[in-house]
């Protein structure tokens, strides 16, 4: 292998003194760290979105196939809000983060009242109805918002070069490796997700509304007997679930762009997370999101990207096959 770092424009090594090993590429340690950082961003967004799906499944026992479209709507509304509200990117972004989940949540609650309630939350019919809802939301977005991928300006965004420590000939060396960097906004997404999920957990365990939701989850009939308005609880839960997806969409849109087809892959990933984590279990969902998000980043270090996706997918399926009881609250359906 040739001497790396000799190309004039490519490899500034601010830290300088470092034993070069025989590789043409980024060093393994920094590479792994970069992949983990990227994985953490994915995990954060996924955790938020999947919490919504998990909440809906946990309380209502239905699979919402349109969940990905609520995520997409969150991103699209973030674009709409930031384009129409002036006052700088930070203010516009805060407005989007408040308005988009509210609007999307309201829309979802309405869909629950108009459609799902009349289906008596029958699992199979709900799947078909939410597939119909998926098409309606997607195509309505195509007609109004269009087919383009549109960006949203992040409230702040700085490139942060990250340091790395290595045990070299002269003891501990501290340097900034080539390519190892992230952005302040990506770090913010991770932080925001942690805070939001902690808040959700507090809401579910401490607040009266959360208590009612959990009571309904445990036994709908009993809850009715105790005078809990189960139908209103269901509408609220469906709305909150969609709102969480929309919030995830708002957070991701300054990194990715809003596009009317972005919900599909996000839905698949959230499905995986919810199942791996144990249906309806919020804590399990979070753990699974971190697991899936991080492994998506890390596996890509070792395998060719498409092969990595294949292996990860098969791994998830096999985990489900061989550990179904360990991962589920009970048998589905």
């Amino acid at each position: 292998m040739d001497m790396p770092g000799t190309a004039p424009c490519v490899c500034p090594l601010p830290g300088g003194a470092r034993a070069q090993d025989a590789t043409d590429f980024m060093d393994f340690g920094p590479y792994l760290m970069l992949a983990m950082l990227e994985g953490a961003v994915l995990a954060s967004v996924l955790a938020l979105m999947a919490s919504g799906l998990s909440l809906v499944f946990g309380v209502m026992r239905v699979v919402n196939v349109a969940h990905g479209e609520f995520y997409m709507l969150g991103a699209v509304m973030a674009w709409a809000v930031t384009s129409f509200i002036g006052g700088g990117p930070a203010l516009a972004f805060i407005a989007a983060a408040i308005l988009a989940p509210l609007l999307v949540g309201g829309l979802a609650a309405l869909a629950d009242i108009v459609i799902l309630k009349r289906l008596n939350y029958d699992p199979e019919r709900t799947i078909v109805a939410t597939i119909g809802l998926l098409y309606i939301l997607q195509q309505a977005t195509l007609m109004s918002y269009g087919a383009d991928a549109r960006p949203v300006v992040p409230p702040f965004n700085h490139r942060i070069a990250l340091p790395w420590i290595e045990w070299g000939e002269g003891g501990l060396a501290f340097y900034f490796p080539w390519g190892l960097s992230t952005t302040s906004y990506k770090l913010f997404v991770i932080g925001a997700a942690v805070v939001l999920i902690a808040a959700l957990r507090l809401f579910m365990t401490r607040s009266r509304a959360g208590l009612i939701m959990r009571a309904t989850q445990l036994d709908g009939d009993m809850a009715t007997a105790f005078g809990i308005p189960v139908e209103r609880v269901y509408a609220a839960v469906f709305g909150v679930g969609a709102g969480l997806a929309a919030l995830a969409g708002v957070l991701i849109v300054p990194i990715q762009q809003a596009h009317y087809l972005m919900g599909g892959d996000a839905l698949l990933l959230s499905f995986i997370v919810v199942i791996i984590g144990g249906l309806g279990s919020l804590a399990g969902t979070i753990v699974a999101a971190v697991l899936i998000g991080m492994s998506d980043g890390i596996i890509s270090v070792f395998f060719s990207p498409t092969l990595a996706k294949i292996l990860a997918t098969l791994a998830v399926a096999l985990v489900l096959v061989f550990r179904p009881q360990g991962l589920f609250g009970g048998k589905g359906r």
């Binding site: 790396p4 424009c9 490519v10 590429f25 920094p30 970069l34 961003v41 270090v301 498409t306």
Partner: peptide, 22 residues
């Protein structure tokens, strides 16, 4: 470097770019 279809984030692939790339 082949990026899988439907990928939405790319940073994790960039370390595969050799340093000597011009």
């Amino acid at each position: 470097i082949a990026i899988p279809p439907s990928e939405t984030s790319y940073t994790k692939y960039f370390p595969r770019i050799p340093r000597e790339t011009e």
